[in-house]
Design a protein around this nucleic acid. Structure first.
Length: 420
RNA sequence: GUGUCCAUAGUUCAGCUGGUUAGAACGCCAGGUUGUGGCCCUGGAGGUCGUGGGUUCAAGUCCCACUGGACACCCCA
């Protein structure tokens, strides 16, 4: 084998593509129910957009981006997430001038050069939504409800929604100092990773997986208990809205999003059926981002969800009914006359909307029947010189083995009667 | 980027301490049934044993490197 797909990339093969289509179609239909419209942005952008949008100090920007210089010496990057691109497009196209609240969704490949593992690839796919232009907690709630509704629609149950508030520029600095004050007592005992985060991003120490860190921070102050009035009210309103909408959630004061732009609401949807990479979706509010990227101050919320992880969970819960696309009718040719007829008839049937297959390899009748079986064709019509002479042929229903004679003059109409 | 384990037909795997032409099952192709699938029987095709080096009289088997995979750390969807 000469060429192989690059590390951390995968082909979606013909035998599994219907699963993707099924899930994608479900996502689109939920999005439309919530009145979100699709936005498609280029797979690559100017590198600086992500550096500014996601945060220069994040791991994504620091060491995971696929960045290269194109032939005109421009530094470009394959999108590692969608929000920065969506906001860029929002500003560039003045979407906010046409609508006060812009609600968009996407379904797109993303690229991050990480070491692959369960539920993590270098090219992976996300769906997500952004509601740009409103600060009401009702919008946060709708965004969470939207994500949860996708999973509910698809039958995913083993998961939980965890919410938190990470505050805003009013209350976070003071809390940060409070936290650093608490942590400075135990700083030397923290894991090496957490010690590095002490200055850059102390909030992240709270969701360290290290057992030592966990016990050291067990009694650390949490942002949600030190919110300013506005953030606290917002968080309370979010909770009461979720309760009223009967969306189950739990508060997890240690959730901190890794991207720099989050304010107030932060959330994750976590699966109990996945391995270490158990987050199905994550997101939150980002009230400062639009302004940071050069737009007017525009409070916004959004989320992103991994499609491969969703597929894994659904696979485990056996949520794919397995109705792959298959031919409705297989035209089996008994001889050369039959072959010539099948070639012509297949086109008429296909034009009439009937999924039709025929033998293109010149194989024996027995092989054609086997092929029809393997393809899960509903019906097989065997045609040769004898049938053409009578202008009628035997139609066999594969599942039952039943035979019946059917006229060939208005075949498409006859076949269409069967499928209804 | 770090760590652990792994790499043999299309697929899942076997191949004992290195020893003659590398096997099985399933799948694929053909025939048994000269015009009817699934079951059964018979036959067939298919492998430079991930790649490159090394040790040895001899390497799928031992050693090294590389590449790729799985999982975890990190990070995140």
């Amino acid at each position: 084998m000469k060429f192989k797909s690059l590390k951390g990339t995968r082909d979606v093969l013909p035998g599994e593509s219907h699963r993707w289509q099924y899930v994608e179609q479900a996502i689109r239909s939920v999005m439309h129910r919530f009145n979100y419209r699709e936005i498609r942005t280029p797979v690559f952008e100017e590198t600086a957009l992500f550096a500014r949008g996601i945060g220069e100090l994040t791991d994504i920007v620091g060491k995971e981006m696929y960045t290269f210089t194109d032939r005109s010496e421009t530094s470009v990057t394959l999108k590692p997430e969608m929000t920065a691109s969506v906001i860029r497009s929002y500003i560039q196209n003045n979407l906010g001038e046409q609508l006060p609240l812009v609600k968009v969704y996407y379904l797109s490949p993303m690229f991050r050069q990480e070491r692959p593992q369960a539920g993590r690839l270098r090219q992976f796919h996300q769906f997500g939504a952004e509601a740009i232009g409103g600060q009401a907690a009702a919008i946060d709630a709708e965004c969470l409800a939207l994500a949860m509704e996708v999973y509910r629609t698809l039958g995913v149950t083993n998961m939980s929604l965890k919410i938190n508030s990470v505050g805003c520029e009013q209350c976070r600095p003071a809390y940060r100092e409070l936290l650093q004050g608490f942590l400075s007592n135990v700083r030397e005992k923290l894991s090496a990773e957490s010690q590095k985060r002490f200055d850059a991003n102390p909030l992240r120490i709270l969701d360290s997986k290290d057992e030592g860190d966990k016990s050291l921070t067990a009694r650390a102050p949490l942002m949600k208990d030190h919110l300013c009035k506005e953030c606290a009210d917002h968080f309370v309103e979010l909770q009461s809205t979720l309760l009223a909408q009967k969306i189950p959630f739990e508060i997890d004061g240690r959730i901190v999003r890794g991207l720099d732009y989050y304010t107030k609401t932060a959330f994750e949807i976590v699966s109990t059926d996945l391995g270490s990479q158990d987050a199905l979706a994550g997101g939150g509010r980002y009230d400062l981002l639009v302004e940071q990227l050069g737009g007017k101050p525009t409070p916004s919320v959004g989320f992103a969800a991994g499609i491969e992880r969703l597929l894994m969970v659904m696979d485990q819960a056996k949520l794919f009914s397995g109705n792959e696309p298959h031919p409705f009718l297989f035209l089996a040719a008994a001889d050369d006359d039959g072959r010539a007829w099948a070639s012509k008839a297949s086109m008429e049937l296909r034009r009439a909307g009937i999924a039709t297959e025929l033998d293109l390899l010149g194989r024996s009748l027995k092989s054609q029947l086997k092929e029809a079986d393997r393809q899960k064709a509903d019906y097989v019509l065997v045609v040769g010189a004898a049938e053409l002479a009578k202008n009628a042929a035997t139609l066999k229903q594969m599942a039952t083995g039943d035979h019946r004679t059917i006229g060939l003059s208005d075949l498409a109409a006859e076949i269409n009667k069967l499928s209804s």
